[in-house]
Computed example of a mutant assay.
Amino acid sequence: MKTTFSVLALVAGLSSAAYAEDLKGEITLGAYTGVFQDEYTKAVIAPFEAAHPGVKVNYASDRASSGLLGQLRAQASDPQMDVVLFDVSTALIGNKEGLLSPITKEEVPNLADLAPEATVQEGYGPAVTFDHEVMVYNTETVKTAPTSLEILWDPAYKGKIAATSMPSILGTGLMIMTSKMLGEDYTQSVEKSVAKLAELAPAVQTFDPKPDSYTLVLNGTVDISTGWNARAQYYFDQSNGKQGVVTPAEGTILQKNTINLVANAKNPELAKAFINYALSPEAQTAFTNAMYYSPTNTKATPSEEALKRTLFGKLDSTLPLDWAWVATQNDRWNAMWKREIISAGN
């Protein structure tokens, strides 16, 4: 196995330091729970461990990026995670607070093959997956597949809608997509979209879908919800099409899940080796085929089916969005959600 892997490493142009044959030890990856954990373990972690029999990757899970950030903060003086995977806005906070470490192309060679959109902050952890916001609907109760975001305001679905609010970036995305629908430039003002979402509020059954919006659609609690394409596509398959998925005609936002080296990680060299593998064409292709997250490595080769159901090769079709700039607006926008939108439904 060692000889085979060494050949593969040379072909892939991987770092000999990061991929030494005697690589051993343990690292802990912090990432999302549920089906993400199940599929990521099978598609990425297990092959990495198989290539390195002396390596163990532990998995510390949380439901959301905010929970993973909370763990990092609590462990700042004695990190228990070596690598963490969470959304772009959370990564920017982690970078600012000194919880994450920069990485280089010399340490992580696969950085060289990532799409330009994968860069989050120069020198820090890049996007490991791309995703985009969609509408999720119950195909048994919504007979005609929706095409526009406007369906959320259709009186026929009053009380049967779930829409995740800020501080989740699903809420951020919904506001930006609503601005687009209204012809508003969200970088100048979100007043129109806030007012429009306040009109929607009385029709929304929950702004905090639990257990999650996909389950609520599948069990008939709601008819339509906002969600992420990857999970929605996964549940489309699992439900034999009972849960439908549509990208609104008005456009969608590009969501980035980033992979990051934790500051003062206990095993930084092994952590970098894992990050490099997670960014490789092989790992990216396997996870895209398993769960429909769009790969960030331009050399990935997803199946034709996965290509049709992701944004791979179509990233320029998303709405322009600078997550670093959005981070400067988060507090103000979150306050507007609480004060003007959510309260309008009470």
Rank of each mutant, 00 (worst) to 15 (best):
G123N: 07
G123T: 08
Y124Q: 02
G125H: 11
G125C: 11
P126F: 06
V128T: 05
D131G: 06
V136S: 09
T139I: 10
E140D: 14
E140S: 15
E140T: 14
V142H: 13
K143C: 05
K143S: 13
P146L: 08
P146K: 08
S148P: 12
E150Y: 06
E150I: 03
I151E: 04
P155K: 13
P155I: 05
Y157Q: 03
K160N: 14
K160Q: 15
K160F: 07
I161S: 02
S165P: 11
L170A: 12
L170G: 04
L170T: 06
G173H: 13
M175W: 00
M175R: 00
I176Y: 08
T178V: 03
S179Y: 01
K180N: 11
L182T: 01
G183T: 04
V190N: 00
L197V: 02
A198E: 14
E199H: 10
E199R: 05
A201Q: 10
P202H: 11
V204P: 11
V204N: 08
T206G: 07
D208F: 12
P211M: 06
D212H: 12
T215I: 06
L216E: 02
G220S: 09
D223W: 11
W228D: 15
A232E: 10
Y234K: 05
F236P: 00
F236V: 01
K242M: 05
Q243L: 15
G244N: 02
V245H: 09
V245S: 08
